[in-house]
Design a protein around this nucleic acid. Structure first.
Length: 437
RNA sequence: GUGGUUUUAGCUCAGUUGGUUAGAGCGCCUGAUUGUGGUUCAGGAGGUCGCCGGUUCGAGCCCGGUAUUCCACCCCA
């Protein structure tokens, strides 16, 4: 079923769900009214002012520069703009737990906002199209959602690579090399392998504080992807660990399901896929266009085991995918994948005229055509220049022009010109309606 | 958040070591053609050179600040 959630959420709902970077990219909304004057002495202290009391507040110039932005934020901004569709969905599920039936499926197509510097393929406001299943652990859901990616992009004629991994393997890897505290740093580093290569990844890991042996094991893990049976190879490496065992089992099961669904696109298991959103716990997926120069992801998703738990409804697992609509548009525009019929004008005919009297006639004829379900337009300005009006129709790709002058008014007929063939015939309004219907 | 870059006519852009009245192409308008398109020809309109300040006899050009565009990084859709 379709679902929509408000553009604004409580900042407390959004904070901490997307990683450190995510919190910085959240658009915060200032509280209403004179939020500084409303602050209590206690609150101003909490904002970093040991000696500040309320009488001091009205002197804004003195106070603002002394405020600690991080400490101040909760007091001056309680709302933020939607950052993705998954977290609001989890909030919705929690709030409506009594009225929805699990497993619950929904799709959601709305804009989200990131407080980012815009650049190529990167927008401050963009559309996401999400599909999620919540309240079921089954890997059938993963398989079906991956197949949904596959089918949608096949319908769009846009070849893609769908990359799949499992967070549990990455987690097991961190356990194996005894570097659990550096889990996030490790995932961020290996995610960059494509861009900066092994040496670049090594550099980052050294800076993180890992030793040579640990780094070597990470690189070994990454290279498993090149083998013929990467999942089995990973099993040898990580299968003794609890999370490794689970992750391997999930990937194997998913591979089995997918083999039955005969995908059109490449679905590959890629151990370098990490993803930054912190709420993913199991399968993670990312979609890349397999055509053109744009290499950033045009879709992503994964399984989140405890997102509703944060809102007070533990033990519910969900999995979802997201289509990055704007980036998909960008790639399709670049590759000219939009079908030509989308580019034609719906307007069938333009009414051309010469003076105030024929203008009235054109308006009433146009209305009559519209009443018959025909898209028609009237040239808006009075001009003696018929050529200009025809050229306007041309530029708008309107195929017919109806010319109304004094002689047509008297004979009660219409001159209808086909702008492609150049042919022009007099006809009655009824035959014009038949012609265009 | 860090680094770079852009800003001149409606649009896309030239503009030399600072020097008279800032240019081009396209578009637009008018006419050849007082009611029949895409071509052609002739003519025309349109710019406080992003903004504020400074240097200079003189600034589109140099300097400072500020806004803005796009790009890369970071991160992601």
């Amino acid at each position: 079923m379709p679902l929509e959630t408000p553009a604004m959420e409580q900042l407390s709902t959004l904070s901490g769900k997307y990683g450190d970077e995510g919190d910085q990219l959240l658009y915060k909304i200032l509280n209403s009214g004179d939020y500084f004057k409303k602050l209590s002495a206690y609150q101003t202290q909490a904002m970093g002012h040991e000696e500040l009391d309320k009488t001091f507040i009205p002197s804004y110039d003195n106070t603002i520069e002394n405020l600690d932005p991080k400490k101040s934020l909760p007091f001056i901004a309680e709302k933020g703009l939607r950052y993705d569709l998954t977290v609001p969905f989890a909030r919705y599920v929690t709030m409506n737990r009594n009225s929805i039936t699990l497993p619950f499926k929904r799709y959601q197509m709305q804009t989200v906002w990131r407080a980012d510097k815009p650049q190529k393929g990167r927008y401050r406001e963009f559309w996401q199209c999400d599909a999620d299943v919540i309240g079921s652990d089954s890997l059938v859901n993963e398989a079906e959602l991956l197949k949904m990616y596959d089918e949608v992009f096949a319908l769009l004629n846009l070849p893609v690579v769908i990359k799949v991994n499992n967070r549990k393997l990455l987690s097991a890897l961190a356990t194996l090399i005894k570097a659990e505290p550096h889990f996030v740093a490790i995932t961020v580093a290996i995610d960059k392998l494509d861009k900066i290569g092994q040496s670049g990844v090594t550099d980052i890991l050294v800076q993180t504080g890992l030793d040579t042996k640990q780094i070597q094991q990470i690189l070994t893990f990454l290279n498993l992807g090149k083998l013929a049976n990467p999942i089995e190879a990973a099993e040898v490496m990580l299968g003794d660990l609890e999370e490794g065992k689970l992750g391997i089992a999930e990937l194997k099961k998913l591979r089995e399901f997918l083999s039955l669904l005969s995908p059109f696109n490449t679905i590959e298991f890629d151990f370098t896929l990490a993803r930054g959103l912190s709420y993913y716990t199991g399968a993670i997926v990312e979609v890349q266009a397999n055509i053109g120069a744009f290499k950033s992801s045009i879709g992503g998703g994964g399984r989140y085991d405890n997102l509703t738990g944060i809102f007070g409804m533990p033990g519910i697992s969900g999995v979802g995918i997201s289509f990055g609509l704007d980036r998909i548009y960008d790639v399709m525009e670049e590759q000219q994948l939009f079908p030509s019929y989308l580019k034609t004008n719906d307007t069938k005919i333009l009414f051309c005229y010469f003076d105030a009297t024929t203008q009235l006639k054109a308006l009433s004829l146009c209305a009559e055509l519209r009443n018959n379900g025909i898209a028609a337009e009237v040239y808006p300005d009075i001009t003696k220049k018929i050529g200009k009006q025809l050229e306007y129709a041309n530029k708008l790709q309107i195929n017919y022009a109806c010319i109304i002058g004094e002689s047509e008014l008297q004979s009660n007929t219409l001159q209808v010109k086909n702008l492609q063939s150049g042919e022009q015939h007099p006809m009655e309004i009824n035959s014009l309606i038949t012609l265009l219907q």
